[in-house]
């Protein structure tokens, strides 16, 4: 039970949603964009978040798209993890999001919510960080398309009142060989100790991890693909470089996380070596 009242708005267009937020701000309200709502409801229940209006984005057609067209996989921000996984246009993304929370909740969590939420892991971002991806964002000036690396730096970099409309991934990246490993402290369904994803194209391997520190990070592409280092040297250099990002927590100490990452990297190099 949420212990405070709020107003509920369900706009039917991007403009209506943006204007609704601005109008509420002008009237000294505290609005919140609402996707799946799982994090908002669970935090509101314990008063971990306070707001007096929610703007539900699920009625906006652009936020609900899910298709491969025009050379891109287009995912509306209000699409659920279940729908994205079932569609399976991008197997690495499917595999990653099928390990977020549990199967039932995946039917409620939206990709926009996972990227924009306050829970630091943001596992859905990992496959997007290492692919040719852009985000469509509703801004004061209208719909803008931004490279993923510009709009997401560990967390979504949006101005007040802006909202994520859709994720666009280049079709060429969808079927690349990939690696996904999620390690948890104990249970299969849990926040990650470390989750690692990797893609291999004809030129390079790209890798991103979360759970290691405060935010998801990309591991050094230069080191991972360095032609003069052997695997052991690459792993040592990556661990050293990421040392300052590594933070111990209840899931595992800093030293343990470095040990786990070392093993995950070995596994990844070995898997990619097998496929040539």
């Amino acid at each position: 039970m949420i212990p405070f009242d709020f107003d509920y708005y369900k706009p039917e267009s991007m403009d209506e949603a943006f204007k609704c937020y601005q109008d509420l701000l002008i009237n000294n309200k505290k609005p919140l964009y609402y996707g799946g709502g799982t994090e908002i409801i669970s935090m509101a229940r314990v008063k971990g978040i306070v707001f007096d209006s929610v703007i539900d984005l699920k009625g906006i057609p652009e936020c609900s798209q899910l298709e491969v067209s025009g050379g891109k996989f287009r995912i509306g921000a209000a699409q659920t993890l279940t729908n994205i996984a079932e569609c399976n246009a991008y197997p690495l993304l499917s595999k990653t999001i099928k390990r977020i929370a549990d199967h039932t909740i995946q039917g409620k969590i939206t990709i926009g919510g996972n990227l924009a939420g306050t829970i630091k892991y943001r596992e859905a971002a990992l496959p997007l960080m290492i692919s040719d991806c852009s985000l469509q964002v509703m801004t004061q000036g209208g719909l803008a398309e931004l490279p993923f690396s510009k709009a997401f730096n560990g967390k979504l970099q949006l101005k007040k009142g802006e909202f994520l409309v859709s994720v666009l991934i280049e079709e060429n990246d969808l079927s690349l060989p990939y690696n996904h490993v999620k390690r948890t402290k104990q249970e299969k369904i849990d926040y990650p100790l470390i989750t690692m994803v990797a893609l291999k194209n004809e030129k390079a391997i790209k890798t991103a991890i979360t759970g290691y520190g405060d935010n998801p990070i990309i591991l050094s592409e230069r080191i991972i693909n360095h032609k003069l280092y052997n695997v052991e040297q690459k792993i040592n250099k990556i661990i050293n470089l990421a040392h300052s990002d590594c933070k111990g927590d209840l899931s595992g100490s800093r030293e343990y996380k470095e040990f786990v990452l070392e093993n995950m990297l070995q596994e990844m190099f070995s898997n990619f070596e097998k496929i040539g």
Partner: peptide, 26 residues
């Protein structure tokens, strides 16, 4: 009431949903 236990599961359009994590208006 936190989406962990599943005791409140109902079906919405034939898919399971934890009703503690859904607003009635949704």
């Amino acid at each position: 009431e936190n989406g962990d236990c599943g005791a409140c599961t109902v079906l919405v359009d034939d898919m399971p949903v934890k009703s503690c994590l859904m607003l009635a208006v949704e």
